[in-house]
Design a protein around this nucleic acid. Structure first.
Lengths: 245, 245
DNA sequence: AGCTTTCAAACACTGGATTTGTTCGTTAGC
DNA sequence: GCTAACGAACAAATCCAGTGTTTGAAAGCT
């Protein structure tokens, strides 16, 4: 585990911690801890005060992208591989933001597809591909996440029709449907779903027991859910194809 | 001069060259030359064949972005600094693609502005800024250049009104007006100009004697031209403010 | 087929950039 | 005013991209 994540979690669990505590916890020097705190503060993870830092992570919000990105990569990659397998050459695909979908993007680099990613991270992962047609939606990138949102994004989605939407999310259950942390994100996901004939949700198992603030869509709008462990949670009963990677 | 550029020019001038020739020309090993040829082939600069490579650069087309980017950086930076100085805090700016405008983007990173860059390179340069409002236009990124083009880009521009447009180009003269190498690019530039109240052209002096294929706009649509050396070329007479950086 | 040339994968090396640690003068808070 | 924390500046360590070398495979020629 990276030192940054270690610090983030220690501070979150304790509420606030001193520089010296973090130094002895991680084995790094105090100067290094200060520099780490600076970058974490810039990411909005925590707030510095003289002598230490206090966490800014609410229970309802998700940790910033940079910290999630190399979390559970094995599961993400397995899910991504399964999702990539569901896409046929020549298809047009809208690809949601988030770390799991970024993993999908990486696998699509040499495929023959038309892809419109909803996050700049995925755009960057794909921009050097010569085999696929890359479409960039307009929008305002949310800091860190670099997920595109806002009216420009919605307008881009509304003007296009895709064969498949690959959507990630923060919570998914038969009763609560698909939910996301961010309201803006939720409306983008909704527009992506509306613009596609087929909808695939790429969701690691931990999300199947969770519900986030913003409602996106009922499970009935999904055609398939790709997940990493067995944890159906009533999705099959709700008429969704569940693929376990 | 970088070895890549050296190879590009040698192959262009000779039509085609052998690996051994290029190795002795550059002083690098043959393996390194092969690796270089691989990246240049990926950029579409040349085509490999057993034993060497042949050029794919036409006279009318411009060398790829990666080769132009650290060309004449001093002049570009001076021009960029002058352009940045013409922008006032709070303004909304649409920023064209190209290496000179990328230099401008770098200078805007910590300013308080609303910026919509027309190239993904500039988007990436700005996406970590917390002080400015970044807008991404939709579109298809042209390979290498990563300039956004196409109907999505035009639609994004048409739906917005900017205070200032900063435009780069391949040719500019009082008689021929502003010209670009790429037709798609030209229509994007035109839309950018139409969406802004004030138009600044950022152009190094070598462009002032050149004309490219695609007509963009007459000099009368420009409010100011920022260039690096004295070389008015009748622009002042045509009613344009010429700023020499 | 047999020979020669070219190619590229694998490994080692190198120089530059990034990260980390240390020192020390400055600053914030008591 | 005093003390602890801070951060700038420099030094050390570490990492990484680019390069060269070797070597076995592949391509082209006779």
């Amino acid at each position: 585990m990276s030192r940054l994540k270690q610090i983030t979690e220690a501070v979150r669990d304790a509420g606030s911690l001193g520089v010296a505590d973090l130094a002895s916890l991680t084995g790094a020097s105090e100067m290094t801890i200060r520099r780490d705190l600076e970058v974490l503060a810039a990411q909005g993870v925590l707030e510095r005060f003289r002598g230490g830092a206090r966490s800014l992570l609410l229970r309802g919000s998700e940790p910033p992208f940079a910290l999630r990105s190399d979390d559970n990569t094995a599961a993400k990659r397995r899910i991504a591989t399964a999702v990539a397998g569901l896409l046929a050459d020549g298809e047009s695909v809208v690809l949601d933001s988030g770390t799991t979908c970024l993993e999908v993007a990486r696998l699509l680099h040499d495929r023959r597809l038309t892809v419109m990613p909803l996050s700049l991270h995925a755009v960057n992962a794909l921009s050097s591909s010569s085999s696929l047609t890359l479409l960039v939606p307009g929008g305002r990138p949310r800091p860190g996440e670099l997920a595109l949102t806002g009216p420009l994004t919605l307008a881009s989605l509304e003007s296009l029709r895709f064969d498949t939407a690959v959507i990630g999310c923060c919570g998914l259950s038969a009763e609560q449907g698909m939910t996301a942390f961010d309201l803006e994100d939720a409306s983008v996901k909704r527009a992506a779903i509306a613009s596609a004939r087929r909808v695939i949700a790429a969701v690691d198992a931990s999300k199947l027991t969770r519900t986030a603030l913003a409602f996106v869509a009922p499970v009935s709008s999904l055609d398939a859910v790709v997940t990493d462990a067995d944890g159906d949670e009533g999705l099959t009963a709700a008429g969704v194809t569940v693929v376990t990677a």
